[in-house]
């Protein structure tokens, strides 16, 4: 009896789990598209804001650092160099900031229906990934305008981006859960991201800083990812390949720790909100 029912039990469990995953994915997709729609609803320029923001920032920083301070990023023009770093950084920073309020800002939804709460920060991060894809188009346009050669190693970009998505989601889960308990997290993250930006090679070239400082900066996984992303696009070879595995290890930790923390705090959501 036991032997006869065992395979059926396994199959049933697999089917049930796959069905669960399917619903989970569908829900995340719907929430992400709703997030993008509501974000740009009733605005005159709509999704163009996703393009305008990085464009204006790149223009300002390009003028200040490239024209006034003559920061050299040869052979890549500073505007393109900075825009590339900013595009990838913005995805991380915007993803985290969207995730912060994803649970606390949906109190009404949480009160009405039951669904896995972890979907909310996931959808928030994925919504910012859609914005990121628009920004990436702007970067491609700039690369074409400035005729910057792009290497075939750019094909590795999706792999690094997957890692970045997981890292962003991990941080997103942590801050989304903590923000339900302590609303200071939103303010704190704003500050932390500002410091984090300067510790990441977004507006400066990593090879230009002192060797010992490079080592410290590369321990930062976001910095490593941005450096890798720029390297695979513009240089065709990775300058610090050994730090890729440091970033992989931290990404795995942050993602799992993020979910663990979220799931631990989740039962308190109903009490606090």
């Amino acid at each position: 009896m036991h032997n006869a029912s065992a395979p059926w039990g396994v199959r049933q469990r697999v089917v049930r789990r796959l069905a669960g995953v399917g619903l989970w994915v569908e829900l995340t997709r719907n929430l992400a598209s709703r997030d993008v729609e509501t974000r740009y609803k009733h605005s005159l320029l709509g999704l163009y804001w996703a393009i305008i923001n990085p464009l204006v920032t790149a223009a300002i920083f390009g003028f200040v650092f490239g024209v006034i301070f003559h920061v050299s990023t040869k052979p890549i023009p500073y505007v393109v160099f900075y825009l590339a770093g900013l595009t990838f950084w913005n995805f991380f920073a915007n993803g985290v900031m969207s995730a912060v309020g994803s649970v606390s800002g949906n109190a009404a939804l949480l009160a009405k229906i039951y669904f896995p709460r972890v979907v909310l920060p996931t959808a928030a991060v994925l919504a910012r990934f859609i914005d990121f894809l628009f920004s990436l188009m702007v970067l491609i346009v700039f690369i074409i305008i400035y005729q910057v050669p792009v290497h075939w190693t750019s094909l590795w970009l999706p792999v690094i981006l997957v890692m970045q998505i997981f890292f962003t989601m991990g941080i997103g889960y942590m801050v989304a859960a903590l923000n339900v308990l302590y609303r200071d997290v939103t303010q704190l993250m704003g500050l932390l991201l500002m410091v984090w930006l300067y510790f990441s090679p977004v507006m400066y070239r990593l090879s230009g800083v002192h060797q010992n400082l490079q080592t410290i900066l590369l321990i930062n996984p976001v910095g490593t990812m941005i450096e890798l992303e720029r390297n695979v696009i513009f240089t065709g070879h990775v300058l610090h390949p050994e730090y890729l595995w440091v970033a992989v290890a931290w990404t795995g930790f942050v993602f799992l720790a993020g979910i663990a923390l979220f799931k631990r705090v989740e039962p308190l959501f109903a009490e606090v909100m």
């Binding site: 789990r17 995953v21 619903l23 989970w24 039951y114 972890v118 979907v119 799992l256 663990a260 799931k263």
Partner: peptide, 14 residues
């Protein structure tokens, strides 16, 4: 509930 299987238990993730 959906998505609340053994894989999503906080202890396991921790």
């Amino acid at each position: 509930p959906v998505g609340q299987g053994a894989l999503l238990q906080p202890e396991r993730f921790a």
